[in-house]
Amino acid sequence: MRLPALLTALVAAATCVVVGVAGGTPAAQAKDCVRPHGPLVAYGHSYLLSPQLGGAKASYLTLVATTLGVKPVIRAVNGGTTLNVDNLVHNGPTRWTPGSADLVVIDSGINDIGKKLPTAEWTGALRRVLTTFAVKPVPVILLVRPLQVSAPGHPGRDPKVIAAYAATQRKVASDFAAVRIVDASGGWNPRLDLSPLDGLHPTAAGELRLAKAVQNVAQRAFCSS
Results as ranks from 00 to 15, higher is better:
residue 8 T to E: 15
residue 122 W to N: 09
residue 177 A to E: 13
residue 177 A to V: 10
residue 64 V to M: 06
residue 165 Y to M: 07
residue 114 G to M: 03
residue 36 P to F: 02
residue 39 P to M: 03
residue 225 S to D: 10
residue 124 G to Q: 05
residue 18 V to L: 14
residue 63 L to G: 06
residue 180 R to V: 01
residue 160 K to T: 15
residue 76 A to G: 05
residue 78 N to K: 12
residue 181 I to G: 03
residue 43 Y to M: 07
residue 134 A to T: 03
residue 21 V to D: 11
residue 210 L to K: 12
residue 197 L to W: 08
residue 114 G to W: 00
residue 32 D to N: 12
residue 149 V to Q: 07
residue 101 A to C: 06
residue 175 D to C: 05
residue 159 P to V: 10
residue 164 A to I: 05
residue 49 L to T: 09
residue 127 R to E: 12
residue 159 P to R: 11
residue 124 G to A: 06
residue 219 Q to D: 13
residue 197 L to E: 13
residue 119 T to C: 01
residue 22 A to C: 12
residue 197 L to G: 15
residue 58 A to V: 11
residue 222 F to P: 01
residue 49 L to P: 00
residue 64 V to W: 02
residue 126 L to D: 03
residue 80 G to P: 00
residue 16 C to L: 11
residue 60 Y to S: 10
residue 171 K to D: 12
residue 55 G to W: 01
residue 4 P to Q: 12
residue 225 S to R: 15
residue 91 N to Y: 11
residue 190 P to W: 04
residue 208 L to H: 08
residue 77 V to F: 00
residue 112 D to F: 01
residue 30 A to G: 02
residue 105 V to T: 14
residue 189 N to G: 07
residue 207 E to W: 02
residue 29 Q to C: 09
residue 58 A to I: 03
residue 103 L to I: 08
residue 49 L to R: 14
residue 137 P to D: 07
residue 156 G to V: 04
residue 196 P to Q: 12
residue 107 D to G: 07
